[in-house]
Amino acid sequence: MDKTKTIERIMRISDANGISGFEDEVLSVIREEGKDFGTFTEDRMRNLYLWRKENIEGQPVVQLNAHTDEVGFMVKAIRPDGMLEFITIGGWIPTNIPAHLVRVKNQEGVYIPGLVASKPPHFMSEAEKKAPLEIASLVIDIGAVSAEEVINDYKVGIAAPVVPEAMCTYNEKHDILMGKAFDCRVGCSSVLSTLEELEGQKLAVNLVGDFSSQEEVGTRGSIVSANTIKADIAIVFEGCPADDTVVPAYQAQTCLKKGPMLRHIDSRMITNPRFQRFALDLAREYGIPVQEAVRSAGSTDGAPIHLSNDGIPCIVIGVPVRYAHTHYGISSYCDIENGIKLAIEIIKRLNESVIRGF
């Protein structure tokens, strides 16, 4: 695998703007990156499908899923003083939001800079300083002084999508990526890299890349994509919240630089235990580091996928992401690489008989 090319791909996809329902820019980058690997189709949910060019009619279908949307915000109202009230898109903790730069998409399709602002401490009462932070007390300031300026000069209206302002960087010495939307743009990149590494190889299965929309607001896109692809088996790539800095070491199951995480359960899916064991055994056979996790919360596109049609065996290959659902995430390239390696070895071993055994 070409490391430089892979990192550049991750950067391009990460930097693209695309909250839930507004993933168009992300899809444009994916189309450019994957144009040599097969044929693209798109549905009205903005799910993007990449059908491998070497597919042979009649073979079992493997769905390679990753979602394209990122958490962000949407303009709710424009105050007379030019401040923008907003709602959250996806799961946010209020204390992670203020004093960060954002990009606000105006009606001409241009993203303009803004700052998430709150009442300065100089003007707060003691009661206000001690009160829990609420989204309603925050605004986005784009530098305007009136609602008229916002609408007429900045061309910003209500329902404008807003994304975090962050550019992806890579520290080669420490093998660390920092940037926004690693949940799940590292997954999108991994789907493309998996298809790229298998290019020209003879397989006993057909591959479909599924770049689904609106995962962050209820795994909505994959409900449609699962019924479109009608796969026999699925691998979901995900950027998963790392826990190595927030729980005792003995509880940590999603640590940086210890390999991708394969969950046995989360709030909406019990992973097919036979497919899960198959994947874990292959990781051990090929010396690919992996982590196992039992999760009581959270979910992925695996939730609707594994319940679609007559039930689809599904595993999740999760790349640890520190500080997911904030402006910046931290991931390690080695975890991304090992997730791709595992997916490749799984796909090479799959055939109709093996899949039927799950």
Rank of each mutant, 00 (worst) to 15 (best):
A303H: 04
G302D: 02
I312W: 02
A297W: 14
D310I: 10
S331C: 14
I305M: 06
D310W: 09
Q291D: 04
V290E: 02
R295P: 04
Y323K: 03
P320F: 08
Y323H: 09
A297N: 14
D310T: 14
H327L: 09
R295W: 01
R295Q: 12
V321I: 15
S299F: 07
H306C: 15
V294C: 11
A293N: 10
H325L: 12
S296A: 09
I312A: 03
V290I: 15
D310F: 13
V319L: 09
I330S: 02
I305H: 00
S296F: 12
V290R: 04
V319D: 01
P313Q: 13
S332P: 07
A324C: 09
P304C: 13
T300C: 13
Q291F: 03
T326M: 09
S331L: 06
R295T: 08
T300L: 11
A293S: 15
R322T: 04
G298R: 05
A303K: 05
G298F: 07
S308V: 06
V316Q: 08
R322C: 04
G298M: 07
V321Q: 01
I312G: 00
S332H: 14
S331D: 06
I305F: 03
V290C: 03
N309T: 14
A297H: 14
H327A: 15
C314G: 06
D301Y: 01
I315T: 08
R322F: 10
G302C: 06
A297Y: 15
R295E: 12
L307M: 15
Y328H: 11
D310G: 13
V290Y: 05
A293W: 01
C314V: 12
L307F: 11
T300F: 02
S299D: 07
S299C: 13
S308T: 05
C314L: 10
G318P: 07
V290W: 04
G318H: 06
I312N: 00
T300K: 07
P289C: 08
N309L: 13
S296E: 08
S299H: 05
H327W: 10
P289N: 03
A297L: 13
C314F: 03
C314Q: 08
S308H: 02
P320C: 13
I315S: 04
S332I: 00
I330M: 05
S308W: 01
I312R: 00
G311E: 11
T326A: 12
